[in-house]
């Protein structure tokens, strides 16, 4: 049934024009942003953004600070709904079932779309409980599935070998890089449809950053990743697709290699050659 729906949808996708020329991925769609506007109160932060997110690929969003890339990322799991006065326009459609997540219950959206934040933010609990948190939130409290999925998630975040002997110790005893990988494991444990990463390495040293980048390149084989970064090299190294944003608008979107070697827009070219930003 599910598979049937999926193929049905895929046929539909071929008819939808790619938002920006030929740049859009030809693979399966996991989500599609259509004409998305976003306001912080009276200030418009996103203006008519169109973006197609490919299934099980890494999509990077780059741009100068204040360009709206983090704002866009936080639309995907409706984080903005936590604060009063924010409003959306347009759609973010989630596939395969083709629903507009802007109109879904934000709590349900977040059950499907995980997030890792700029600063590592583990809970003041044990390593085990941190990874199990997302499962407990979903009503999974039995020991066996918890143990299994916690181990699975920690291995997926390449942290298992470092912490397997001290799962009951406080997460605050870990180094910054380990804490961030713990947060990735925490987000992975409930097996999200999409994993959002908001500048996940900006608070880390180069070695810890390298470990996380390495992890992300492995991760995307099984999970759809959207990452915001203001480190262009990072986007070039780890992503399949890159979106360049400026002043709340999506300027250019394409296959990462193409965007960095042959940008179509002057603005993109200026940014990636370091003329501003």
């Amino acid at each position: 049934m599910q598979r049937q729906l999926n193929t049905l949808m895929n046929e539909q996708f071929d008819d939808i024009p790619a938002p920006l020329g030929e740049a859009s991925p030809a693979t399966e769609l996991r989500a599609e942003v259509r004409n998305l506007d976003f306001w912080y109160g009276d200030t418009q932060a996103l203006k008519g953004v169109n973006l197609r997110v490919a299934d099980r690929k890494v999509t990077a969003m780059i741009g100068p600070s204040g360009c709206g890339k983090s704002t866009l990322l936080r639309c995907f799991n409706r984080m903005h709904d936590l604060y009063p006065g924010n409003s959306y326009g347009g759609e973010i459609r989630l596939f395969p079932e083709d629903r507009n997540l802007i109109e879904m219950d934000p709590g349900l959206v977040r059950l499907r779309i995980g997030m890792v934040f700029q600063k590592p933010n583990p809970f003041p609990k044990s390593i085990f409980e941190n990874v199990a948190a997302g499962l407990r939130v979903r009503g999974i409290n039995a020991k066996k599935p918890l143990d299994e999925r916690v181990e699975q998630a920690l291995q997926g975040a390449a942290l298992w070998d470092e912490v397997k002997d001290r799962l009951q110790e406080s997460a605050y005893g870990l180094s910054g890089g380990q804490q961030q990988r713990l947060c990735i494991a925490r987000a992975l444990a409930p097996q999200p449809d999409i994993l959002l990463l908001d500048e996940p390495t900006s608070a880390l040293d180069p070695i810890a950053t390298a470990k996380i980048e390495d992890l992300l390149t492995k991760l995307h084989k099984s999970v759809t990743v959207i990452i915001v970064t203001h480190n262009m090299q990072q986007a070039a190294r780890i992503s399949n697709y890159t979106a360049y944003m400026h002043m709340g608008k999506l300027v250019e979107y394409g296959v990462t290699d193409d965007l960095f070697t042959a940008p179509r827009e002057q603005m993109t070219s200026d940014y990636i050659t370091g003329r501003f930003g």
């Binding site: 977040r110 933010n121 939130v137 987000a187």
Partner: peptide, 20 residues
Amino acid sequence: DLREAAYGLGADKWQTVRLY
């Protein structure tokens, strides 16, 4: 941070308040 971490995991308000 702590609240966003909880909401980001899919916790609803009462879970966020009660558990974290």
